[in-house]
Amino acid sequence: MTATEPVPAVSTVGPGPAAGPIRVVLADDEHLVRTALRAILGAEPGVEVVGEATTGAEAVSVVRALRPDVVLMDVRMPEADGIRATERILAGMDDPPRVVVTTFENDAYVYDALRAGASGFLLKRAGADELVQAVKLVARSDSLLFPAAVRALAAAHAAPRSDDRAAALREQLSEREAEVLRLLATGLSNTEIATRMTLGPATIKTHVAGVLAKLGVRDRTQAVIAAYECGFVSPR
C-alpha cells in the first residue's frame, strides 16, 4: 500500500485527553479545505479547533502561541512547506503537539514528513470518520496511525539496510525493549502488546518510553521509522 491508495479505517479509538477536549490547529492554504476540516472536527464532541494557518511560517507562529494537542498540516504550503514547518515546531517547543500531515498523494513528501517528526498522515480524500478517528488516535498516541501505510512508505523510501546499525540497536535495547519495538512496528497498541507479551499495560508503557528514550525520538512513529531504516525490522 502507498499513500496513493485508500487509507484503512482505524479499528478502535479511545477518548481524548482526560484534562479536556483535544485542541486542534488546521494549517492549509486552501480555504475550502480548512472550512471542511473545521466543520467535521467542530461537530465532534471532545474535539475543538482552536486556530488556523494559511502558510507554513504562520503555522509555526500559531502553534507556538496556542499550544494545541494536534496539528493537521498540509504538506505543500507557501513560505515554508509542511515538512519544514513540522521540523520548526518540534524543535522549538518543549512539549510540541502531535503533527499529522495531509496530502493528496505524494509518497515522497509524506515519508519526508514522517522522518521530520510527523506522527502520521491523512489523504485529503479521507472520510469524516477517518479524520476524527485519526485525530483522536494521534492525541492518545499509544498506537501507530495507519501502520500498513507507514510500512509501505518505509519499504519504498527507507535507506538501504545496515546490519551494523541494526546490531548496534540490539545492543542498546534490552531483550524486552527489542521485542516491544518489533511489535510496535506491526502497529499494535500498548494494550495489544501487553496481551501478546503477557505483561501489564503499565509495564509496556514503561518499555515503550525506554525505547523512545534510547532511540532519541519523541513518539512511536519515529521509533518505527528508525527501526526500519537501520534494518532492525523489515517493512516487507
Results as ranks from 00 to 15, higher is better:
191 T>N: 14
215 L>D: 09
31 H>T: 15
124 K>R: 08
40 I>W: 13
225 I>M: 13
165 R>H: 15
42 G>T: 07
210 G>A: 05
119 S>M: 00
64 R>Y: 10
228 Y>H: 15
227 A>C: 06
223 A>H: 04
105 E>C: 12
132 V>D: 02
135 V>A: 04
148 A>G: 11
59 A>P: 08
167 A>T: 08
99 V>Q: 00
69 D>F: 03
102 T>G: 11
139 A>V: 02
231 G>C: 07
125 R>Y: 10
203 T>G: 02
220 R>L: 05
105 E>Y: 15
61 S>C: 10
196 R>N: 09
26 L>E: 08
151 R>D: 04
220 R>F: 01
116 A>G: 09
119 S>C: 03
231 G>I: 03
110 V>P: 00
104 F>Q: 14
134 A>D: 02
195 T>D: 14
95 D>V: 09
21 P>H: 05
94 D>A: 10
150 V>Q: 14
56 G>W: 01
104 F>M: 14
190 N>R: 10
79 E>I: 03
133 Q>L: 12
176 R>L: 13
67 R>N: 08
8 P>Y: 02
48 E>G: 07
170 R>K: 13
85 A>S: 08
142 D>R: 10
93 M>S: 06
174 S>C: 05
14 G>L: 06
180 V>P: 07
26 L>R: 11
17 P>A: 01
44 E>Y: 07
106 N>R: 12
183 L>T: 03
162 S>A: 08
112 D>M: 06
48 E>V: 09
207 H>E: 15
204 I>Q: 03
218 R>F: 05
226 A>M: 12
79 E>A: 07
92 G>Q: 01
166 A>P: 06
161 R>I: 13
40 I>Y: 12
94 D>C: 03
6 P>M: 04
208 V>W: 02
186 T>A: 11
107 D>N: 08
23 R>K: 13
15 P>E: 15
98 R>F: 02
127 G>A: 01
8 P>G: 07
142 D>Y: 04
231 G>D: 10
116 A>L: 04
37 L>V: 08
153 L>Y: 06
150 V>S: 10
236 R>A: 15
61 S>G: 12
190 N>Q: 11
225 I>N: 11
192 E>L: 04
128 A>F: 05
54 T>D: 13
234 S>K: 09
114 L>G: 01
27 A>M: 04
121 F>D: 10
125 R>T: 14
90 L>N: 05
228 Y>K: 10
39 A>G: 12
152 A>R: 06
208 V>C: 01
49 V>I: 03
5 E>S: 14
127 G>K: 01
